[in-house]
């Protein structure tokens, strides 16, 4: 039965007189029975031009009798969003696993010669964003799926504190995501400007399905796609999240519902994308994690995956075997190895 079921029934039954006199024009013959409130109920249900209404009670939308966005929100959340989000978030890891089993990791034969790839601030910014992202994803997904996964398993009394903790933690860490996102954006955007070869890279699927490794600069097409998705969806997430953090500043419930819809969708898309990113950074491609951990990568790794960048580094004479002491220079914040400073 439809949500409003009984309610509509009641309203309609009660107002049968109004319903009879839908058309305001009196009949030409017979007795015209004037209708006490012809347009009233249309207004109540917000059909056609809603009438301005008033109330003594102060509060968000308190002068509105029926909020039509509410039912759309329920429908979206219960009939669509939660289900498709579950499919997506369960499906992507399965696909990745299958890919890994068929394709295996991309191997690296270390040359022992290192290149500086990410300086200290690059790495701190990246891991700050990653930490906050993972925490927000974990707590957010608990709020989204907990009722269907954890409640049947642990019960309501156990889930309630978990959900409360998730909500408070999520609300508090949210703004930090925006801070970290802006930091990462500013530090990495110059290296992520799109180029023609990135499109070629994407069309060739990064060379994952055989063939020569397509050409790539500092970042390849896939990495740039991830960067820009993160920027766009991350901003949407942050803005909608901030509105949800301060619901008292929202002008209407419609906008809050819209924010929840956008927030949920963007979050699920980013989490699904992040699975791929995490796979490529760890198990998928040998030698990649080192770049974000220590700041240096093996020269062979660079030649394999980022040939243009590698060529540039060679041209500029940056390729050198980093000794223990030189490795410590990865702490410099300028992105370059500065000579004469240890």
């Amino acid at each position: 039965m439809n949500a409003y079921g009984l309610l509509w029934g009641l309203l309609l039954a009660l107002l049968s007189t109004a319903a009879q006199a839908q058309n305001d024009t009196p009949p030409q013959s017979g007795i015209w029975i004037p209708n006490p409130g012809a347009d009233l109920w249309k207004a109540v249900r917000q059909r056609g031009q809603p009438e301005p209404s008033t109330t003594q009670v102060q509060g968000l939308d308190s002068n509105q009798l029926i909020n039509v966005a509410g039912e759309k929100f329920r429908d979206w959340r219960r009939e669509r969003f939660i289900r498709y989000a579950a499919y997506l978030l369960a499906g992507v890891p399965v696909v990745i696993l299958l890919f890994h089993m068929l394709h295996g990791a991309m191997k690296l034969e270390p040359s022992g010669r290192k290149l500086l790839r990410f300086d200290l601030y690059d790495r701190v910014a990246h891991w700050l964003l990653a930490t906050v992202f993972l925490f927000l994803a974990f707590t957010g997904l608990l709020l989204l799926f907990g009722r269907f996964v954890i409640v049947p398993w642990l019960g309501l009394d156990a889930f309630s504190p978990i959900a409360s903790a998730s909500k408070e933690g999520h609300n508090l860490f949210g703004p930090l995501f925006l801070v970290a996102l802006l930091w990462v954006f500013l530090r990495f955007v110059a290296r992520n400007l799109p180029a023609w070869r990135d499109i070629v890279w994407l069309l060739k699927g990064g060379g994952a399905f055989g063939g020569k490794h397509p050409s790539a600069g500092f970042f390849n097409g896939g990495e740039k796609l991830w960067f820009w998705s993160l920027a766009v969806f991350g901003l949407l997430l942050s803005l909608s999240g901030l509105l949800l953090d301060f619901p008292s500043y929202a002008p209407s419930r419609e906008l809050l519902v819209l924010a929840l819809v956008v927030h949920g969708a963007a979050a699920v898309i980013l989490v699904a994308f992040s699975f791929g990113h995490i796979y490529m950074g760890t198990a998928g491609v040998e030698g990649t994690l080192e770049g974000m951990r220590d700041g240096t990568v093996d020269a062979n790794w660079a030649r394999q995956h980022h040939d243009q960048w590698y060529a540039e580094m060679v041209r500029e004479g940056r390729l050198e075997a980093l000794s223990e002491a030189q490795e410590n220079r990865a702490e410099t914040t300028t992105g370059q190895l500065e000579e004469g400073r240890t």
Binding site: M1, N2, A3, Y4, G5, L6, L7, G70, E71, F73, R74, R77, R78, L143, L144, G146, R147, V151, L156, F159, S160, A163
Partner: peptide, 13 residues
């Protein structure tokens, strides 16, 4: 409501 929207969307049921 007989099939209440509030109950449907509540994350903690």
């Amino acid at each position: 409501c007989s099939d209440a929207p509030c109950a449907a969307v509540c994350p903690v049921d």
